[in-house]
Design a protein around this nucleic acid. Structure first.
Lengths: 241, 241
DNA sequence: TCAAAAGTGTTGACTTTACACCCATGA
DNA sequence: TCATGGGTGTAAAGTCAACACTTTTGA
C-alpha cells in the first residue's frame, strides 16, 4: 500500500520533501490481489496506518525504489507481504489525481495479481492483512476503491480469452470449481452444458483421470491446466498486450 | 517527450537530483499521437534533443507538474505542441525500466491520442515536429518504439467496438475513407460489403444526404458521427474501462 | 431413499464470411 | 470509352443460447 509511504512522509523526511516539492512526486505501486474461496472472489487488504484513513482498509503497496524497475516493484511487495514469488501480476493503470494522497503528491501504478489462497507457501504473517469478500467492501483508503474497480474490469475481460484464471485455483480442480470461479468473477450464472462445451473448445485442460474425493455428493473429474500454458504469463501479457 | 526532462536534468538541477536520489524518480507523460492521411496511419514525433539520441525521433512528452493531475498532463502537452484542446486521449500504461532514460530515473505514463491531421486549429509551429508514417519508423529514442507498439495494440482493440476512430477523420467523410482508415489501423483488407453492413449495424452514423465532390471517380455519400456519440470520450473510457 | 451435483446433445437464432455485378462520375 | 470506386444481397458455415433427463455418490 502506498500507506508505507505515509509513515515516512510524516517524519522529518516529510518536511524535506515538501520544500523541494517541485521535483518531488513520489511514485508507488499498489497491488490488487485476488483470491478465490467458498465460491467468492476475495481481495487482500491491509489496515491503513494513516490517521486520515483510520479503520479503513487499503491495498498492499509501496514506494518504487530508485534502482528497481517499475514492473518489479509489485513482485517485491508481494514477496514481502505474502512470501510468494512466482505470481501472476499485470499492470492495469496509473492513478495520479493531485489530491489522491492526503500527505503529499503520490502517483501510483496499479497491478492486479491472482493467487491461490490455499497455496501452502502463502504466509500472511502480518495480522493487519486480511482477505475480504469483494461484495462487502466498505470505504477504502485513498482512491483504492476505484483502483479495485479498474482491476476487476480488466480481470473480467482477460478471463474470457486467456488462461489466467487458473492462478486462482489449486493444481487439480473440477469443472464445477472452475465454473463457480467464472461466475464469481463475472457476477453471472452460467449454463453448465454451454460452459463445459466452451471450456472444452479452448483446449486448456488435461483430464487427470482422477476424481474428487472430499465432496458430499457425486464426485467430479479432476483437471489441470495443460503444461505449456504456464500459469502466470504476466511478463508476456504485460506490455505487449 | 520525456526529452524536455533531459534539458532540465542536465542543468544544475541534475546534480541536486542525483544526490537526493532515493526520493527522486521523475515522472513524465508521453503522447502517442495518431493521425490519418493518404490512407496511412501517421504518428507525430519530435527530434530528440538528447545527445544520446542525436538524430532519433521521440514522442511528445513532458514531466508531470506537482500541481497537476497525472491525466491532465498529456492534455497540456498536446495543447502546447499542437494548439489543440479538445482531443481524444487515453492512458495506455506506464513504463519504468530503470535504464529507460539515459540521464536519470524517469518513469513515464503513455497516452494515446487521435487527432485529425487536417484540423484547421492544428498548428505545429515547432519545425522539429513532424508526422511520420507508422510503417517506416526508424530507431526511436528511449523505449518509445515499445510504447508506440503498446498504444497501437490498444487502438486496434478499441476501434472494434467503440466509436473512437472518428477523431481521426474530418466532420464529413465517406464510407470509403472510413474503411481505408480501419484497414490502416488493423493492417488488413476488409470486404466492402461486409464492412458496410457491420458499420450500418453499429448505428453510429448519420447520412448527410451530401456527396463527395473532390474525387476523380463516382462520388460517395457523406456521413457524420451521430451527435450524442461525442467524438472524444476520453475521460469516460479512461479509468472506468 | 434422498439430496446434490455430474454428465451429456439438439435445436433455433444469430453472426460471420465469401463472393459478383451493374452504376455513376471524371478524365 | 475507360478507369475508379459506389452501391447492393444471398447462401453456407459457424457461433451462441436455451433447455431436461439420467447417473453417481455420500449422508
Amino acid at each position: 500500500m502506498a500507506a508505507d509511504t505515509l509513515k515516512k512522509l510524516k517524519t522529518a523526511e516529510a518536511e524535506k520533501i515538501s520544500h523541494i516539492d517541485y521535483f518531488n512526486i513520489a511514485i508507488s505501486v499498489d497491488c490488487v490481489i485476488f483470491g478465490f474461496e467458498k465460491k467468492e472472489l476475495k481481495i487482500l487488504l491491509i489496515k491503513s496506518d494513516l490517521e486520515e484513513f483510520a479503520d479503513k482498509w487499503s491495498l498492499l503497496g509501496d514506494l518504487v525504489r530508485v534502482d528497481e524497475d517499475l514492473d518489479s516493484a509489485p513482485y517485491r511487495v508481494l514477496r514481502q507481504r505474502t512470501g510468494l514469488d512466482d505470481v501472476f501480476l499485470q499492470q492495469v493503470g496509473s492513478f495520479g489525481a493531485t489530491n489522491r494522497h492526503p500527505s503529499g503528491r503520490v502517483i501510483t501504478t496499479a497491478y492486479y495479481s491472482l493467487i491461490n489462497i490455499r497455496n501452502h507457501k502463502l504466509k500472511i504473517t502480518d495480522n493487519e492483512v486480511h482477505w475480504h469478500s469483494l461484495k462487502d467492501l466498505k470505504a477504502l483508503a485513498f482512491d483504492h476503491k476505484q483502483i479495485i474497480e479498474a482491476c476487476l474490469q480488466r480481470l473480467r475481460i482477460q478471463v474470457m480469452d486467456e488462461p489466467v484464471i487458473f492462478n486462482l485455483l489449486p493444481e487439480k480442480f473440477s469443472l464445477r470449481e472452475l465454473q463457480d470461479l467464472y461466475q464469481a468473477i463475472l457476477g453471472t450464472k452460467l449454463d453448465r452444458r454451454n460452459f463445459r462445451k466452451k471450456i472444452a473448445l479452448k483446449n486448456w485442460l488435461d483430464d487427470l483421470d482422477e476424481m474428487e474425493d472430499d465432496v458430499p455428493h457425486r464426485p467430479g473429474k479432476l483437471y489441470k491446466l495443460k503444461t505449456g500454458l504456464k500459469k502466470h504469463l504476466a511478463g508476456l501479457a504485460e506490455k505487449v498486450k
